[in-house]
Nucleic acid binder design. Structure first.
Lengths: 206, 206
DNA sequence: ACCTGAACACCGTTCAAGT
DNA sequence: ACCTGAACACCGTTCAAGT
């Protein structure tokens, strides 16, 4: 595909596509060059070395994160809605998000979401250091949950799975508990439960 | 250092040391061979290829995770103590833990901790699916928090840091909030606050 | 200003050959 | 049973040379 003159934008575009589909490990300078129909070394002229290329992709991702529109009737409901938006946005770009995270730009990426959280926390009557704690607790919880979830999906075959390890004997006198632990996790449900519980407890302190 | 006959144990030992100090990326078959004073290819005879070597290291780490001894007077206190133990164990082996996690063995690694959590949750009066939810919510929260924390430490220079972004103007009418958000996160404190809040709220439902 | 190929120093892995 | 070096196919990066 040796086409129109190579441009920084084109390089980033193709690189982003490669990462999105196959992860950052699949982004080699040589494959990228082949994809673009140029010599490997041309890439260096436009975007610098591999590290700088990845940095540029990350920067792009951070810019692309949309604004957050809270919805719901109470502050708690609106915080939960913000959390769900954060999770959705994270899950849509798993590879790129991991790279953003590795570069320590997660906070900057979540600045719009954080502003929304601040507003809701204040609306619930919290202020000062207490309000800051609540905002950060929710933010850590959401990002952490998505990280755990992502890794679980990457290798869904827990060996041996949680299941086998939780024979009824493991929770004597409570077969329902044993059965529940033997079932695979429903992440969506657990996420909602966790965020809702934490949020309501944090706001109740106000 | 061409010494005594090469053994699988020696290979794993040296490999683990390399990973512990410099991370998995620094573990190349050639460097490992140099460290051991053997030919690169000897490693393949003893532990197989690089992937299998990493798998073996992970297996070792999982086995090494100690048992958990809860402490405290109430179930909530004891759950928080379990959470702190989990966090400490995770933080002591950051690289290896990340590898365990990538291979989806986190659940198995935390089986002892999970048993402890189950016991405490039941002691607090929860049972059935509700108890399972509580256990998993705490487990996700702890692992997630440590993952977030770890990535933050790896790249402590948030650019621009949260600080600059939270000029007093950002939280109009609440300079204390703005100041609190401008300060760097105290992970230890935030961890305790988050776990304690979530735990107490989860147990209160029982 | 932009693009190129050759060359370098690194990888993981295979394999035939040694003892 | 254990260890070896040579060889292969892949990396990222530099650099002098082209237009």
């Amino acid at each position: 595909m040796a086409r129109s003159p190579l441009t920084r934008e084109a390089v980033l575009e193709t690189a982003a596509a490669l990462v999105r589909q196959h992860g950052p490990a699949a982004l080699t300078m040589r494959k990228l060059a082949a994809e673009l129909g140029t010599a490997v070394t041309s890439i260096y002229w436009h975007v610098g070395n591999r590290e700088q290329l990845l940095d540029a992709l990350v920067e792009r991702t951070v810019q692309d994160m949309g604004a957050i529109r809270p919805s719901g009737r109470t502050p708690a409901e609106r915080i939960v809605s913000v959390a769900r938006s954060m999770r959705r946005e994270l899950r849509e770009r798993p590879h790129l998000i991991a790279m953003v995270h590795e570069r320590g730009l997660t906070d900057r990426m979540f600045l719009p979401a954080q502003r929304a959280l601040v507003a809701e926390v204040r609306a619930a009557g919290l202020s000062g250091a207490r309000a800051a704690d609540a905002v950060r607790a929710v933010q850590f919880q959401v990002v952490g949950f998505v990280l755990v979830e992502r890794n679980r999906e990457r290798s869904p075959v827990q060996s041996p799975g949680e299941g086998e390890l939780w024979e009824p004997a493991a929770a004597p006198g409570d077969p329902a508990l044993a059965r529940a632990l033997a079932r695979p996790v429903d992440p969506e449900r657990l996420f909602l439960l966790s965020v809702r519980t934490l949020t309501e407890a944090l706001l109740a302190a106000g």
